[in-house]
Simulated assay, not measured.
Amino acid sequence: MTVSEAIEVAKGHLTTVLPELAASFQIEELETPPYRSNWSFTFSALPASGEASSALAQLLRQRRVTKSVEIDAESGALISIKNAVA
């Protein structure tokens, strides 16, 4: 599996779990599997803001959502989706 293919597969798994953020996920980090059998990725997204909401709600929406995704390097099977460690 190429890097581009692996990114799309990982993003697809993440989109299935968090469809409301699908359009805004961007890749931040990746680890290729030279000696491992898994790809590891870190994606981030900013939740969309609503029309009418309080200042506090808008501030909370500005928090970036960051997720780590791990897939099998050969099959693309999902291994894990976790909150990324800051």
Rank of each mutant, 00 (worst) to 15 (best):
P47H: 03
S37N: 11
E29M: 12
F41I: 11
G50Y: 08
L30F: 12
L46S: 11
R36H: 10
H13I: 05
T2L: 10
Y35H: 07
P34Y: 02
E29C: 07
E31V: 10
S40F: 08
G12R: 01
T32K: 10
T2W: 04
P47E: 03
V9D: 00
L21N: 04
H13T: 05
T16K: 14
I27M: 15
F41T: 11
S40D: 10
F41P: 05
L30P: 03
P34F: 03
P34M: 01
P47T: 03
S44E: 10
F41W: 14
E29Q: 13
L21P: 00
A45M: 03
P33T: 04
V17E: 15
L46F: 13
L21E: 04
P47C: 05
I7R: 05
A10C: 09
S37C: 06
A22I: 00
V3Q: 12
T15N: 08
T32R: 12
W39M: 06
L21C: 04
T2Q: 09
T32N: 08
K11F: 02
P33G: 06
E8W: 03
I7S: 04
V9M: 09
G12E: 02
A23Y: 08
W39F: 14
W39P: 03
P34T: 02
Q26R: 15
T2C: 04
A22M: 01
G12S: 09
T42A: 06
E28R: 15
